[in-house]
Amino acid sequence: MTATELTARALLLDMDGTLVNSDAVVERCWRRWAAAQGLDGDRVMSVVHGRQGHLSMAILLPDRPMEQNLAENREMLATETADTEGIVPVPGAPAFLASLAGLPHALVTSADSRLSQVRMAAAGLPYPELAITAEHVGASKPDPEGFLKAAAELGVDPADCLVFEDSGAGIAAGLAAGMRVVGVGPRAAAHHPTVQVPDLTAVRVTARPDGALLITV
């Protein structure tokens, strides 16, 4: 397959499914929640990736008070944070993140700060200096707020940012922010990212003399 070259001024990175493979934990926790609610597990799993938990709950149980969703999401976050069994890096993620040392990039995740730190550590990955987590936004992906906030913090125009995402909600958020999106992994393929890669193994990032980043995927 012919390599694609993109240029950007900053890279904005999702975590779950993009840098960290946490599917085993997500499946355990959310299928258990689905069973307790009498919901179909496959239906629940088709919704939860990329979104904050309370928004997923609101979609799946639209008649339930948001206060209950928020309370259950706090319990879910505690459960997920305590469960690190099966967490591994997405193939290529360690070398990819190492190549970004000193370059403009940020983590933009629907996880809260504690969960994101625990999962990155469990996968043996360095935690980026700038992280936009659930506490920093008022709206969950697919709203673009998180990506726009990261771009503003880095001082980079949204059009000059390149997003790496795996979920439909995340890809929609990146595109809505006016950014190009590299879809990572099999989940991304159905959601029309700008470019699609199976994992991060073949992704290369090079800093040019003018400060721009050349990304080969």
Rank of each mutant, 00 (worst) to 15 (best):
A78N: 07
A176G: 14
A173G: 10
S22Y: 06
T201A: 14
M76E: 02
T216V: 02
L6D: 06
G50V: 01
A8F: 15
P186I: 09
L13D: 09
A121D: 15
V118Q: 01
H54M: 08
E75F: 07
R28M: 01
H105D: 02
D160M: 14
E165S: 10
R114H: 12
A93C: 04
L39G: 13
D166A: 08
A134Y: 04
M179Q: 13
C29K: 11
M179D: 13
C161Q: 05
A101G: 00
Q68K: 10
L130Q: 08
V205W: 06
I171G: 12
F96I: 06
L162K: 10
L39E: 13
V108I: 00
E75N: 12
E72D: 07
L13P: 11
I59M: 14
E5C: 12
L11F: 08
F96M: 07
C29F: 12
G41P: 14
D83F: 07
I171Y: 12
T18R: 13
M179H: 13
D23K: 03
A58I: 04
D16A: 11
A212K: 14
I171V: 07
V184D: 10
R51P: 04
A3N: 14
H105F: 02
D14G: 08
L125H: 05
A190M: 07
D14L: 01
A8H: 15
